[in-house]
Nucleic acid binder design. Structure first.
Lengths: 361, 361
DNA sequence: TATAATAATGGTATCGGTACCATACAGCCA
DNA sequence: TGGCTGTATGGTACCGATACCATTATTATA
């Protein structure tokens, strides 16, 4: 139906291979022939068939990015980072969404391997080795994003979840909170575990007894945040602060607190993990440990492209990006607030809190 | 490197075509042979090469979705609708992001045509015919999403922008507003024009003179909403209500109002167009004309799949989905509020406003 | 002038599947 | 027994592009 390289060749009175040379700017072609071929291409509206080319090359110049929730702005920001770097190097991107569902993830992996994508950036739905091994078995490079997988030799790009959680909780402790609950994600995912670990380290260093711990695992979505916040409120003594392990959990928690008639931060403090897009900065609100989402996408892609460029023998690398603690309203002030900071304007107030944090940690 | 169908055939002691029959469940294969082949597939970790298959079939079972801003939750919701329908029918999806940039859009179109995707769902960066014609010239079906393109025979799925804007502005008028500014998108995009048209119709029907109109075109992003809101505030008499033509514009406007020291809705009303995700419903806030984003994606994909299934001769169809007017806080109350509704609880209050709207329109 | 290097072009095989046609055998009916 | 149908399997060509090698004309070098 659509014209092939042979049709173009016939029309230009040359051999197919010559048309190929024109298209790819390879080999020798005279000015005159090139012009004739280019004219034929335009006349026939010829579009080269990448399938055939890829079949020959055994290279598709396509990368796959598999994330767990495309409606979460954190992941779309990561995706932009990946896409920008990929495009800059002439690669296309296939973006897939697993909903943290292993079956869906494995189905996508299969389809993508069949499509012979050149490389994978994978946010694993669960911190297990199988999916990564399945990819590596086909000699396709893969970079694991955001999460750790124990016992597998693979490149990883992730944030310092443990450290970020530690600093965030330490800040809450510095504000005077002694009853802090953590609303985490699935215990099968390393970030959820790491953030709990940071929380526990902060508590331990503050000399709080283990029974001060209030740990609620769940999933990384709004519903889970809502439910676990309600459960956390039941514990006695009632927590004076909640630490949500991602942005969606924080939103669910916020709704639960609202329904319980608790105001943030006056009645209870609420801090969260994750990058938050311009979206939620309508009123600068959440105190949080902000991940460098865009940069995560960039670094992961660069790493993958290096592998593709031939560094496939090198040792697996692990890149751990720092998280930025951003102090805003939701964490409230000192439980016994110094009068001096009562009515400062926003930015100065935030700066002051930052200064305090620096002093305290 | 990776095993081919021939390797599997050799190991199972059959011909390649027989392996093909096993994989595709086509033709006759004995139980015994099938078992041998399946064993060989597992042993060799054989993954069929879709490139070769697609080259032969001239079908890739891949659809392309081209949207203008992947960080806008409206579009990711649309994308989920598309993805779900596509997957249910065994199609993969390539999701591309143009940033409303025509050059980027055209580059993607070229790449995707070369990849021989089976069909396109396109949100055109500008309401012009060329990109659609370019796709149709290759005999590839395309559905235009969200926007109208004059003078092209093509399937379209969009929302009733004119009607939604009309109803939203009529509601503001019913509340007593007489100075309403509209902060719209690019005049090159049909939705931006349609929403202004609905605004004008509402004003005209209310008997307001043409010089009551305050129309500010811009782009569909936060920065534009911010700038145009500032400009709108300069006009005299100052508007008592702003109508933002999409969610991002509303957010930018909100920031501008905040900086100007104006509270919503006490000092000024603010309503907007677009679906808003769970995100912004933290505190039920925006009064808006909500598009059925997920459904838009679904319907567009169904239409496209019908074309692929052979309905390619049928007349082009245009599906116009209704928008839902959702009354929340940001529009405020009657400018001369009846005392009776002053302190109603939220939901009852909203219901009351809805009732009033029904009466008035 | 002979030889080599450069420029320009083409023939053929190949990537990994599958369509099409051919072959072979078993069982069944007239 | 011959002819037919259904079952099971394989050979060959082909999808569209390109690698590899070959060929020829032209120009540079010894």
């Amino acid at each position: 139906m659509s014209p092939t390289i042979r049709d173009v060749a016939r029309r230009a009175g040359v051999a197919p291979i010559t048309v190929s040379r024109v298209i790819n700017n390879s080999g020798y072609v005279s000015q005159e022939t090139r012009a004739r071929v280019e004219a034929a291409i335009v006349e026939l509206r010829y579009v080269p068939n990448t399938l055939a080319r890829s079949l020959r090359f055994k290279k598709t110049r396509v990368l796959a990015l598999i994330v767990t929730d495309i409606t979460n702005p954190f992941w779309t920001t990561v995706a932009r980072g990946v896409e920008d770097v990929a495009n800059a190097h002439g690669f296309s991107l296939i973006l897939c969404n697993t909903d943290e569902d292993e079956a869906k993830q494995d189905a996508y992996l299969q389809v993508l391997l069949q499509k012979r994508v050149d490389g994978f950036i994978l946010v694993p739905a669960r911190s297990i080795a199988e999916p990564v091994l399945a990819i590596q078995a086909q000699n396709v490079p893969v970079v694991v994003l955001d999460r750790q997988i124990p016992g597998v030799a693979v490149d990883v790009v992730r944030s310092d979840s443990e450290g970020g959680a530690y600093r965030l909780v330490t800040y809450l402790l510095a504000l005077g909170h002694r009853h802090i609950a953590v609303l985490s994600g699935p215990p099968t995912i390393s970030t959820a575990v790491d953030r709990v670990a940071g929380y526990r380290r902060a508590l331990a260093e503050a000399g709080l007894p283990p029974d001060a711990e209030r740990i609620f695992y769940g999933t990384y979505d709004i519903a889970s945040g809502y439910q676990n916040a309600l459960r956390a409120l039941q514990s006695t003594p009632r927590p004076t602060a909640l630490f949500a392990a991602n942005n969606f959990i924080a939103i669910g928690a916020l709704r639960a607190l609202d329904e319980a008639g608790l105001r943030v931060p006056d009645d209870i403090a609420l801090v969260c993990f994750d990058d938050v897009p311009l979206w939620l900065q309508i009123t600068p609100f959440f105190t949080m440990a902000s991940q460098r989402a865009y940069q995560m996408g960039q670094r992961a892609t660069e790493l993958l492209l290096e592998r593709l460029a031939g560094a496939d023998q090198a040792e697996p690398r692990e890149i751990v990006l720092p998280v930025d603690i951003v102090i805003r309203k939701s964490s409230g002030t000192m439980r016994t607030p110094p009068a001096a900071v009562a009515h400062r304007p926003d930015s100065a107030w935030e700066q002051h809190q930052m200064d305090r944090l620096d002093e305290l940690i």
